[in-house]
Design a protein around this nucleic acid. Structure first.
Lengths: 246, 246
DNA sequence: AGGGAACCTTGATCTCAATCAAGGATGGCG
DNA sequence: CGCCATCCTTGATTGAGATCAAGGTTCCCT
């Protein structure tokens, strides 16, 4: 995840410091983006789009958590993406949503209508290049995730998910520490299960096991404290310091 | 997978008719690409790059099959990408390979040295836009694959893989038929297992089962004939006509 | 405070795929 | 032709996680 220097505004009032679409653009382009942007909010649990719906905007996550998921005929579902603040959503050049998009907490998005955004993209090479970088990052994350889904044990999956959220939180809040980390789990046990290709019972059992062994501490069901991040990383099965760039 | 009209050359002697990087470029850009391109061949089984290796080119697959894979500390491996003719490999803006890349058959690639390619990309917006499209397609494929890895049964996984290869072959050879389809499996049972997050024994058993039940026919171990593609699709668990755009 | 819904935990049992094990087919090469 | 290596198949057994089931917690609403 590389640092982007912002040459100008920071997308004005969006609290976005990196991975923002508008980074690198010159004033004029930023003005155009400013002009076409608008905010939308969604409540926790609300569906932002169903697969196949017409989706006439692209957007950057400002706050909250949303998920992308896919479903088989008989209802089995798999989460295929996690949208955290500063992530980009939507696909220039495609009319329909390819996934179910759901807000798991209250969500604010900074949206751009798709057509004008596409036009702007055609005229300003920076944007396509920036989107390409971001999409390649997402692809890397998806592929790490495939390794998780295909080859990790339940315990490793849980540890990996906790490590991802901890690291992602830390990089926003503190800069990563090797030591203690705390965060709120933004997902229900069921959502975690859908993320990891498990059942919610297995998630619950493995979380309990990690707690019992002191790898994590829980305050309530959702607030997690990791006394030693390196200890947690040992449980992920990853090469030391691999890490998923979500 | 949309059709690209080629306005000019077809990357001269590369047998690439769609998804080629050089499609849509004007003559001058094509000339520049022509100038910097070169071919490389790899033998079946040869490793093209190890994770972390310096990789100073990007490339388009001309012929053959290659795989991208990732490995955990203890050796468990998961294939995360399959490179078929016309697929793009490599990442502008990144020095190191992020995956192990292996030729599973003899492979010919049309390569471009990374630096000049990046320069060209900066100057010709078409290319970044085209790469963005291709990367978004890859991301879709990766996400379908995640659904497969996380939620499908062994039998569904095998059926899905066969369907992907059959469809992909058909779109190159014949245009897709609803009826009979034939192709050579470009992967060993072990490679299929690494693709699907299974063991090679399970792959073998499920292939045998599909054969026993007449869903597929085998001539030798590698030549597959699908008497009724729709019947095969029923076994994938997918929504009718979903389909993975590899 | 009481009722109910959503969410979570834990136990018992079952099942699908992994693992362990043996042997068969294929093909290259002396 | 026979040897060897690689790849594949099949059988027996095990085990991790799914499924089925019951009850606990938390928190909102009246």
């Amino acid at each position: 995840m590389q640092e982007i220097e912002l040459t100008h505004l920071e997308c004005s009032d969006c609290p976005i410091r990196h991975r923002a679409v508008c980074a690198r653009c010159d004033t004029q382009e930023l003005d155009q983006l400013e002009e076409m942007k608008y905010y939308r909010t969604f409540e926790a649990g609300q569906t932002i789009a169903w697969t196949g719906d017409k989706l006439d905007f692209v957007a950057t996550m400002v706050s909250g958590i949303a998920t992308l998921s896919q479903t088989l005929e008989d209802g089995r579902t798999q989460m295929v993406g996690l949208l955290l603040p500063s992530d980009f959503m939507g696909r220039p050049g495609r009319e329909m949503a390819s996934y179910d998009v759901t807000a798991t907490t209250d969500v604010v998005m900074c949206c751009f209508r798709r057509r004008p955004f596409e036009d702007l993209m055609r005229n300003t090479p920076h944007i396509a290049q920036r989107l390409l970088e971001m999409t390649l990052d997402e692809l890397d994350a998806a592929r790490e995730w495939m390794l998780l889904l295909g080859r990790k044990t339940a315990r490793e999956k849980i540890a990996s998910l906790l490590a991802i959220i901890a690291r992602r939180n830390a990089s926003i809040n503190l800069g990563r520490a090797g030591g203690r980390m705390e965060f709120d789990l933004p997902l229900t046990r069921e959502a975690m299960a859908d993320y990891l290709g498990l059942t919610l019972e297995t998630v619950s059992r493995q979380v309990s096991a990690l707690k019992r062994e002191g790898v994590i501490e829980l305050a309530g069901k959702r607030h997690v404290s990791v006394p030693d991040f390196d200890r947690l990383m040992l449980e992920t099965g990853d090469d030391t310091d691999g890490g998923i760039p979500v």
